[in-house]
Design a protein around this nucleic acid. Structure first.
Lengths: 210, 210
DNA sequence: AATCTTTAATTTGTATACAGTATACAATTA
DNA sequence: TAATTGTATACTGTATACAAATTAAAGATT
């Protein structure tokens, strides 16, 4: 068993990713390399590398000679992001639908059904798993990478959905999506997935919190 | 007038990009940070940053503690890359076809027609312009970014096409593609674009030089 | 002769010092 | 008082020194 030790840059990157996704580091926050060093007790070199990685993910912006700040896309840009993801994930689903092992879908269905007690928190995990499943089995590693990046990039705006009151309905729609995928009913599955992602946008729109 | 001075990292990045795209830096070549420093007369910090940028583009691979090397994807992976690009660019074309200004297409047509004397070299530029036009007008900045990255990533494998003997035919097909775009004939244009990109793959296949 | 161990050399990962630039604030002038 | 210029501060860009780790080689043991 080989225990992999991540570099300081990698550790800082992962930690910041969590912070940004969970919303603890607010969008628009300006940050200095120095403050990061203090926070993680590392030097500037790995701190800068972590920032560059986050920039690659489209989560942090770099202004030459003027520091770094967490991306705060306009509402319109977030719409574009969701729309982009919707279109590309539909592409992936077309290829993936025949390749996803049934047992994985069944497992997901199980998980979805068994979470009646605490739907808000767990459902995000199931959601991730479903999207990951599609990416994993689309048969194209580049498409997979693109989807993973888009997923990361849109994750800061995902948490808005959890405290929606329409949890029940969303969960039901997910269930039927999985069913249709099991049935290899491509057209219906595509429609459902499309709606599912577009919903993220719609909830955002209703709130107008940006 | 504000004169923008690029950072050393940016300069090195651009230069390396050119080198890789033009094939002067061979795929599979292993390189050390030190050698880059010598070559560009810079220190390791900007050299590393340039390498990280290239890694982001999918052109350079980093093996922790074991150096950097230019990506040498397998034939199968290059196929995947082209296929990914084909699918996503078709998405973009669907959205773009109604937004691309006619005069731009006309200009491209002109350029294509006027290059009968030296078709091999210039045609690449027209090709780039066409793909850029589609990306620019798809109405989604994320999709645009993805396409640009895919374009950069596949550019090292594009030069194989120039010395093909079927230049005439390729040129004709491009012309009809532009025509169909002008006619707003989405279905035909999609088919032609699809073939156009797939052709890159096919030429690669015929050569089996990888 | 082959294999395992240890050691040396090379190269990346990290820390830090220095230089240059941008921003903010103060001072001076119109 | 407003505007412009000068100055100080803070932060990024860059260079370099040091630490850690991997690879390769040399040596010893079976």
């Amino acid at each position: 068993m080989k225990l992999k030790r991540y570099s300081l840059a990698e550790q800082a990157y992962r930690e910041m990713l969590k912070q940004i996704i969970s919303g603890q580091w607010q969008a628009g926050d300006k940050m200095t390399e120095e403050s990061l060093c203090e926070h993680f007790k590392i030097s500037r070199t790995p701190a800068r590398e972590a920032l560059m990685s986050l920039t690659r993910d489209g989560l942090v912006e770099r202004q030459p000679r003027c520091g770094w700040r967490i991306c705060s896309p306009t509402t319109e840009q977030v719409y574009e992001l969701f729309e982009c993801r919707r279109q590309i994930e539909c592409l992936a689903l077309k290829s993936a639908i025949d390749n996803i092992p049934e047992e994985k879908l069944e497992a997901l269905k199980e998980a979805l059904l068994s979470e009646t007690e605490s739907p808000k928190r767990i459902s995000l995990q199931v959601d991730d798993d479903l999207h990951q499943l599609i990416a994993d089995h689309c048969g194209n590693s580049y498409l997979k990478n693109i989807l993973e990046r888009l997923s990361r990039q849109s994750s800061p705006f995902r948490y808005f959905r959890t405290d929606s009151d329409s949890t029940e309905k969303i969960q039901q729609e997910r269930l039927t999506l999985i069913e249709e995928m099991l049935n290899k009913n491509t057209d219906k599955a595509l429609k459902l997935l499309s709606d599912h992602i577009a919903q993220g946008r719609k909830i955002l729109e209703d709130r107008k919190t940006l």
